[in-house]
């Protein structure tokens, strides 16, 4: 049975203004999120991952940002909603978990108050019921002494505890979608796994879909159902997680996978992609963005503007020459 689609993003463009010109940080992104699914977005720093998810809930500064394309939630295109309209969705239908749990909590408010806040604006619960719900949430996210923690301040908790609090906030109104923007990057390795387990457990309880942003392909392999690999504002490869790891096609995906220790099943003579991601204003606006970083393929082989093409069922690649790699790879073995 096909799971219910809960979010559809179509041809999303997000541009930031510098002086009087807009520059696309997200340049034509499409994806769907289904109930109970974990959709992961991976890609190096600055490629536009956060920009995508911020625009989904309208967290960008509207004076400096232009969003176009469609973001369909609950049969409505929310891409250009006003702050008031977004406020009805944020916290209630879409929960957001951020990267830096210390900075993301208000240093001057008690934990209890910070978890209670979405309940005030999105539910009819009275004060006592809200307090009960806060304790229940803290229990759910694995905090042992909730009665004590509600009266503590963020700086009094450990990093892992704070991230649990942020999860409690995001889940307080049982949202349909959870967006987690690098939820474990700021945490100790030992705690990362606990937090991710917690997230998947809670997801199952409320049947939410998760958009998970991460740098960590290990996390993707372990959790994600579908994966999008992002480079310079575009998805360059989208596939089911298993397929992506078994059969990576885009040169960029391959270079990412190469950095995983246990990936020696891949071709040994894969070329390393050199250079830095070009900054937003210096992105080449024509031609394949990868071309400058892959010199070993003859120029004639590259297509001007490769599209994201479906090469096998559910596996999309934005690369005309992927077959070359494929052949080269097999020939090398």
């Amino acid at each position: 049975m096909e799971a219910e689609k809960i979010l559809e993003v179509k041809d999303l463009h997000v541009a930031f203004r510098f002086q009087d010109k807009y520059y696309d940080a997200v340049d034509g992104v499409d994806f769907t999120l289904k109930r109970n699914e974990i959709f992961a977005i991976v890609g190096e720093s600055g490629c536009g991952k956060s920009t995508i998810v911020n625009s989904i809930v309208g967290l960008h500064d509207k004076n400096f940002t232009r969003v176009s394309g469609e973001i369909i939630y609950d049969n409505a295109n929310i891409a250009n909603y006003s702050e008031e309209e977004f406020n009805k969705i944020r916290g209630r239908h879409i929960g957001f978990i951020f990267q830096d749990p210390l900075a993301s909590l208000n240093p001057l408010h008690k934990i209890g108050k910070q978890i209670e806040e979405p309940l005030i604006y999105h539910t009819d619960l009275d004060k006592n019921q809200r307090e009960e719900r806060v304790l229940e949430l803290l229990n759910q996210v694995g905090i042992n002494n909730p009665k004590r923690v509600v009266n503590q301040f963020p700086h009094e908790l450990s990093g892992g505890m704070r991230q649990r609090v942020l999860i409690a906030i995001a889940l307080s109104c049982k949202p349909n979608i959870i967006i987690a923007d690098e939820p474990t990057t700021a945490l100790d390795v030992t705690i990362q796994a606990q937090i991710l387990d917690l997230l998947t457990d809670l997801q199952k309880e409320i049947d939410a879909g998760i958009i998970l942003i991460t740098h960590d392909l290990g996390v993707v392999a372990q959790m994600a159902d579908r994966v999008a690999v992002m480079y310079a504002g575009q998805f360059v490869e989208v596939a089911n997680a298993e397929e992506l790891f078994d059969n990576p096609l885009h040169p960029y995906t391959r270079s990412l996978l190469q950095s995983i220790p246990q990936s020696d099943s891949l071709g040994k003579d894969l070329h390393v992609i050199r250079g830095m991601v070009p900054s937003l204003r210096n992105l080449p606006r024509k031609g394949c963005r990868f071309a400058p970083r892959i010199q070993w393929i003859p120029e004639s082989e590259h297509e001007e503007n490769p599209e994201l093409r479906e090469v096998s069922k559910g596996h999309f690649v934005r690369c005309t020459c992927w077959k070359n790699f494929h052949f080269e790879d097999e020939g090398g073995n």
Binding site: V57, L59, E83, E84, F86, N87, K88, I89, R90, G91, R92, G95, F96, F98, D100, A103, S104, L105, N106, P107, Q114, E117, P118, Y121, H122, L166, I169, A170
Partner: peptide, 13 residues
Amino acid sequence: DYVKTARSKGVPT
């Protein structure tokens, strides 16, 4: 960031 969190909770402006 904590202001972003507040907005992400749907707190009115």
